[in-house]
């Protein structure tokens, strides 16, 4: 089984961290095959950011796909750009704090979470991507939650250990939303 996703948003929303935590965590804690491909442009800051992640039990072919199972969208521009790449029957994860439009598709499932507002309520706007990661893992169950908790410890804890509890809390909050949406 291979599961592919695109995560996309503004630069600064932690889109790349969303992808690397998922991919790094899966590499470290499982035997699965993983690819992570960050789009890159000429600008160092600003503009849109997006990345592709594939997780599979077997060898992964394309690290960049035309059609994905899951789409994680942090802003309106990215929704417009990538909605066509979501497979029929796929799942769209939306940051409803920012994304005001809704796609004109009835062949997909939409999981909504106001992750920017939730992050602000937690006192740190930067953890919005971690909340969304919780939503994604809680809903998709593509990997165990421990995989991400370890990745947070490993990647964020290495440089800023004081931020680990906040990120763990953010992840758990998202996880609850994801699990609830699954039911």
């Amino acid at each position: 089984m291979e599961r592919d996703l695109i995560a996309a948003g503004f630069g600064g929303q932690g889109v790349m961290m969303f992808g690397t935590l998922l991919a790094q965590g899966t590499t470290d804690a499982t035997d699965k095959q993983v690819t992570y491909f960050p789009s890159y442009g000429a600008e160092m800051r600003g503009g849109t950011a997006n990345c592709y992640v594939a997780i599979s039990d077997d060898a992964i072919g394309a690290p960049v796909m035309d059609q994905v199972d899951d789409l994680v969208i942090f802003n309106d521009a990215s929704l417009e750009k990538f909605i066509g790449k979501l497979k029929k029957g796929g799942t769209l994860f939306l940051n409803t704090s920012i994304v005001k439009t809704r796609p004109d598709r009835d062949d997909i499932t939409i999981v909504e979470a106001p992750v920017t507002e939730m992050a602000l309520e937690m006192g740190n706007a930067k953890v919005l991507n971690i909340i969304m990661l919780g939503v994604y893992v809680g809903y998709s169950q593509v990997i165990d939650k421990e995989v991400i908790l370890k990745a947070i410890e490993h990647k964020i804890g290495a440089k800023r250990p004081q931020l680990v509890p906040l990120n763990n809390e953010a992840f758990e909050k998202g996880l609850e939303i994801g699990k609830a949406a699954r039911k």
């Binding site: 590499t27 993983v34 690819t35 992570y36 960050p38 690290p63 960049v64």
Partner: peptide, 9 residues
């Protein structure tokens, strides 16, 4: 550029 930029185990 894909192989240079992508991450893999």
């Amino acid at each position: 550029g894909v192989l240079g930029t992508m991450m893999e185990p």
